[in-house]
Amino acid sequence: MIKKVFEKPLSWFERIFFIDFIRGLSVTIRHAFSKTITTHYPYEKLTPPKRFRGFFGHKVVDGREPQPAFDEWVERFKIEVEPGRSRCVVCLLCKRACPVPQLFEIEGEKLPNGKRRVSVFNMNMLLCTFCGFCVDACPVDCLFQSDIHETASYSRKDSVLTLEVLERIGRDWQRRREKEPDRIWIDDAQRMRLWYENDLKLPEVKKQ
């Protein structure tokens, strides 16, 4: 069923005294004299939410790996586990899941003791769409997206994330945000205020 809704036409009183204009003007004047709600970007920065899809990183081995998946993959590929280094097990699932697979350059190496380890892990961020499929695919919770979003660089070479950079981002992120509760805005008064200002009045769902 289509319900037709017409706009109420302006009455002559409203037309002659510009009531609609006055209503609009009153709205703008109220906003003009209320506090601004912007962030002065290069001087003030917002903390992105924990789930923000920014630059990639490799979480490092610190005893919080998802078990039993991590141990299973380590056993299957005979991976050398070093605390403080990348959790990567060189399964290439991230490359498989990627819509632009050539942005990954992943190689493993065999150590003298017969075990294996990731040696090259380059991600060319110029090709990346930040879709996060690789993160979903990662079986050992190694690859993840951090809150780093200021990604400008002076050359194309600088926009390739190497294994070293990925590990550094991972260590940094684990130190700062790993233990944070998974909420949308965190510890940011400005954003919290905005969030509550936009307190939507949704109709309550009636239980039957």
């Binding site: 703008t28 906003h31 003009a32 004299f33 209320s34 506090k35 601004t36 709600i37 912007t38 002065h40």
Partner: peptide
Amino acid sequence: KVAAHIQRRPGPM
């Protein structure tokens, strides 16, 4: 400045 404050921005600062 006027435009900015009506849109709740600070304008050039």
